[in-house]
């Protein structure tokens, strides 16, 4: 009864038609989303089945699923995925937290900000992968090098985006806080940080993508396990099934992480379309 009241208020016929059309549009979009994926996999499978494409070079969906099945059986599916996920999450966490704090410090002190501005711009344009050999020298080969690569790739963009969000807070609102006799710390915590929450969520979204780039780059450089390791390894021994299967698992993991962040977006930035 209650549900009926909720879904069927006394709206006009044209409104009902409008809602119906909206629902239909949504269904069509979702249908075609799935359709594109199924068609892509289907065509890929057929082309390799009839040898139009050589599965040795491009693999095929059935081979990829078989590969994933084998990995699930021998336990490497979870172990290797976990290694990469772990590196990514740690790198993502450190880069976001440290970058955020640095942005706050730069917002706090204008002179310090002006001193560091050119360095941040230069660091941002530097391809971080160039630091690979140096990173291995500094922290040794292994997880810490991979995490550091991940952090370096994410941190600069975190600092830049958060700082510009902090500086974009309306001057009038700061004046309002000052007219209420607020201290700088109060202005920070009651105005600047909360008002930049939407930008923070978009930084998180950017960092999801960037941190995967970082951890895979790191694994390419130095690793004994992980999805990136398997991709390099599979490439070296011409086992494209392994490469493709690992790539597919990466897609799923990255999407999962992105999904969690977009849940945050709904909370802090309900106006945005994710």
């Amino acid at each position: 009864m209650k549900k009926q009241q909720k879904t069927k208020p006394n709206f006009s016929k044209s409104h009902q038609l409008y809602v119906k059309r909206l629902k239909k549009d949504k269904f069509v979009i979702n249908f075609f989303r799935v359709f594109v994926l199924v068609a892509f996999l289907g065509i890929w499978e057929l082309l390799t089945y009839y040898k139009v494409l050589d599965p040795f070079f491009v693999s095929s969906p059935s081979r990829i699923f078989a590969q994933i099945g084998t990995m699930a059986q021998n336990g490497t599916l979870l172990t290797h995925s976990w290694v990469t996920l772990y590196e990514t999450l740690i790198g993502f966490g450190i880069a976001t937290a440290v970058g955020y704090v640095i942005a706050v410090l730069l917002w706090w002190n204008e002179k310090v900000r002006k001193v560091f501005e050119p360095y941040i711009v230069v660091l941002n344009s530097l391809p971080k992968i160039a630091l690979g050999p140096v990173i291995i020298l500094w922290v040794g080969a292994g997880t810490s090098a991979i995490v550091l690569m991940c952090v370096l790739i994410c941190i600069v963009i975190t600092i830049m985006s958060m700082l510009s969000a902090f500086l974009a807070v309306e001057e009038g609102k700061i004046l309002l806080m000052k007219s209420m006799h607020a201290s700088k710390l109060q202005i920070l915590f009651k105005l600047v940080l909360p008002s930049s929450m939407p930008e923070f969520v978009s930084v998180l979204k950017i960092n999801v993508g960037m941190s995967w780039v970082g951890s895979i780059m790191g694994e390419y450089l130095t690793s004994k396990a992980g999805r990136g390791y398997l991709i390099v390894y599979g490439g070296q021994i011409f086992k494209i099934d392994l490469v493709m299967a690992s790539t597919m698992i990466l897609c799923i993991l990255a999407f999962g992480m992105y999904y969690f962040v977009s849940l945050l977006e709904k909370k802090y930035n309900p106006g945005a379309k994710s």
Binding site: E170, G172, K173, S179
Partner: peptide, 11 residues
């Protein structure tokens, strides 16, 4: 102090 805009904090 009351300003031209209301400057209410949306959150």
């Amino acid at each position: 102090y009351m300003f031209q805009k209301d400057f209410l904090f949306e959150w």
